[in-house]
């Protein structure tokens, strides 16, 4: 009996995992598979024409593609040579290929109706006002934050705020918590985040529940994600900007949660939390009305009673 249950359980697990996998990943292109025989692994094997022998070598870790992430990224159906030079198809790769200028995101996404709803041109406009562009100029490309190989539009598709937050913050941390990458665009050391945010109460909780860009961008209602990243001098430091009934988070992070609430997941949550977002502004409309009624009733009771007391004396 126990075995039967175990087998049924295993079968269910298998079916579930297969269906999940089939949803998330599509087969990679032939071209990508060709490159990934080497670039998808820690080691690669080559036939050395000089020695005539087969050699196994370590792949440069910066050139390894994480195939699991690649399979779930937006560009997963691409061939590597859609963006990289076709000359890469031969090995050994020619040294000067490294100097080849790569396509930028706007080369494909700009001025194309297919992508109009993503407003790439406006994003570029906003980005050019940002501290990243002002300090580093053209060398600060989209890919500094958005890894083309693995990029997922989490803010649009994710059903949980925490996933949106951690995915998004990982982008910032990939440089701001990594000296080597930080120094790609700056000669300075990256500031220690816990120190520069020492003023922020419940730091850990904030870092886990809101995105860096909540405070560090100029929120634009019409853009899904604001790209005008602000320096610390211009970032939000006032608690009430978020912790109020008119929280600026409604225009940023929580506009996605609205989508989530409407999608029907967690109906109870949607009803109770519909207009109540934050500590400090936990305004559940029904409770608010009830509290006003109770308050008025208490005052009226006291007033009425004292009127009787003075008139019936």
């Amino acid at each position: 009996m126990l075995n039967l249950i175990r087998n049924v359980f295993a079968f269910v697990l298998l079916v579930v995992s297969l269906s999940v996998n089939s949803q998330e990943s599509r087969p990679l292109s032939e071209g990508a598979l060709h490159c990934l025989t080497c670039h998808g692994n820690q080691t690669y094997t080559l036939q050395n024409p000089w020695t005539g022998q087969e050699e196994k070598r370590l792949m440069n870790p910066y050139f390894i593609i994480d195939t699991t992430h690649y399979r779930t990224g937006v560009h997963r159906t691409f061939s590597c040579t859609d963006c990289h030079a076709t000359d890469y198809e031969t090995y050994p790769h020619a040294a000067e290929l490294k100097l080849e200028p790569l396509s930028t995101c706007l080369d494909c996404h700009g001025g194309d109706d297919t992508y109009a709803k993503y407003q790439f041109e406006r994003i570029d406009e906003e980005f050019q006002k940002s501290v990243h562009f002002v300090k580093s100029g053209e060398s600060f490309t989209c890919s500094k934050c958005h890894n083309q190989h693995y990029y997922k539009p989490t803010a649009r598709n994710s059903s949980t705020v925490s996933e949106i937050v951690s995915y998004n913050n990982a982008m910032c941390l990939s440089c701001h918590n990594n000296l080597a990458r930080f120094q790609l665009v700056s000669d300075q050391q990256n500031p220690v985040l816990a120190q520069v945010h020492a003023w922020l109460p419940n730091q850990e909780l904030h870092f886990r529940n809101v995105r860096c860009i909540e405070c560090h961008t100029q929120v634009t209602d019409t853009l899904m994600v604001s790209h005008n990243i602000l320096s610390k001098e211009h970032a939000v430091q006032k608690c009430v900007e978020c912790h109020s009934s008119n929280s600026m988070l409604k225009a940023s992070l929580y506009k996605y949660q609205n989508l989530q609430a409407r999608s029907g997941k967690g109906a109870l949550g949607a009803v109770l939390q519909n207009e109540s977002y934050l500590i400090g502004a936990n305004q559940v409309p029904a409770l608010k009305l009830l509290s006003i009624l109770i308050f008025v009733a208490a005052l009226a009771g006291v007033l009425l009673h004292s009127v009787f007391r003075f008139t019936k004396k």
Binding site: K265, G266, L268, G269, L272, Q273, S276, I279, G280, N282, V284, L287, S291
Partner: peptide
């Protein structure tokens, strides 16, 4: 707690 943030529930309960 059932799709509701625990902090949110605690805060609402505390203010009530």
């Amino acid at each position: 707690v059932y799709h509701l943030s625990g902090i949110f529930l605690t805060a609402v309960f505390h203010s009530a």
